[in-house]
Design a protein around this nucleic acid. Structure first.
Lengths: 234, 234
DNA sequence: GGGAATATTCCC
DNA sequence: GGGAATATTCCC
């Protein structure tokens, strides 16, 4: 068994880390795949017959003898926690059998497709999480409205006072906007998590079909998909 | 040296986990304090003379011989990363000397006062992070950190530049927050509406009068009320 | 020094 | 199973 699986990210990622192709799978997946492939340890952990799930035959031995050689602990539960984080589901087979569509015998390249679950993934529609790109940059909406090189101590002093006032106003506005935002988030999260709303297929407002800009439409569709998924699995 | 420092949280915390008194300090702090106190290892790591900072005399030995006995790694840099997370600052003394106001010789009880830095702490204005005392309207979170009556054209000019930078940063943050807020509003409005349609048309659907379960109706009404409140204040 | 991803622990 | 705090790694 190769114990030299390295810990490097080796990930070609963009600024916002959304669904990117990685050069190397996450360390956890690579190590686990290697472990399951290893014929030497088949009495403890192995593929099922088809090679599309794996089975832990002896959790105690796995935790005691194998886990510490790969990870910084010796807990079966932490191992399972990681599996869950990477989207593995236990197969209802009366044994410790786990499935992930991209975790298959002989297919270590597929591991790059597996996305780690983000902390907030369960609460939010994907589109809101990555607070997008070019932030309608109206910074300087204040600063630019004023000559940038005041000629005297007096004018500098005035500008200074004004800047402080604007600074204070901005802080206040920001605080209240954030408060509102967070209340909205709470509402959405609450609504998503508690009672699943019935999702109408097409966005309409007051009975009128809306033509949304591309970006907005995508957002809504993602949200609807998200909602449908949530609804159907309840 | 006591190696049995336990890993339990032992924290009496409220729902939102803000500034709470802990029964036990974080594991990292307790272990590090114990290590610094230990006279056996004073040639590697020890208090300064006053006992209000500690000094790593031999980083290599610390990493190789001591760190692995306490932590799940043997890297000096990871140790330092944790120190920074807990607010320690390197003392400009030409050696590896660290200071934290609540990290003192013989005062392990003080460790409970040290707050771990949150991931988002650096992104938010202090007023939003620590919702503590009367400090909420700190308009001058920036301005107040600087002498309010600069004595010269030059210092005034510097302050001016700084204010503009901060102004720009605030505008950016405000813009992105507003964008997110508005997207959230769109989403919520859309879903409220589609849900409302389903509910409104309920009596006529399939010609059968349907009753929503009490629980669902209550949730929806609460949600609507909250939404109206939020919308009206925008 | 610190942002951010991943890993580990603890708890529900 | 997963939320969330803490720990470790990697990178700027």
């Amino acid at each position: 068994m190769n114990k030299e699986v390295c810990m490097k990210h080796a990930c070609v990622k963009s600024a916002s880390s959304e669904h990117v192709k990685r050069a190397t799978p996450p360390s956890f997946l690579l190590k686990t795949h290697t472990l399951v492939e290893d014929p030497e340890t088949n009495d403890i952990i192995s593929w099922n017959d088809q090679g599309n799930t794996f089975i832990v035959w002896r959790p105690v031995e796995l935790a005691r003898d194998l886990i510490p050689t790969l990870f910084k602990h010796s807990n079966f539960s932490s191992f399972v926690r990681q599996l869950n984080t990477y989207g593995f589901r236990k197969v209802a087979s009366g044994r410790w059998e786990f499935h992930n569509n991209m975790f298959r015998r002989g297919e270590s390249r597929l591991l790059c497709e597996i996305q780690r679950r983000k902390a907030w993934a369960s609460k939010l529609p994907p589109s809101l999480v990555k607070t997008t790109t070019k932030e309608s940059n109206d910074h300087q909406r204040f600063s630019s409205s004023v000559p940038s090189s005041p000629s005297s101590y007096v004018s500098l002093s005035y500008e200074n006072k004004r800047l402080k006032r604007e600074n204070g106003a901005l802080c206040l506005e920001l605080a209240s906007t954030k408060k509102k935002c967070s209340e909205l988030l709470n509402l959405v999260a609450f609504h998503l998590n508690s009672k699943k709303m019935v999702v109408d297929q097409r966005p309409k407002l007051f009975g009128v079909r809306l033509e949304l800009p591309r970006e907005k439409r995508r957002v809504h569709e993602e949200f609807s998909e998200n909602m449908s998924a949530l609804s159907s699995q309840s």
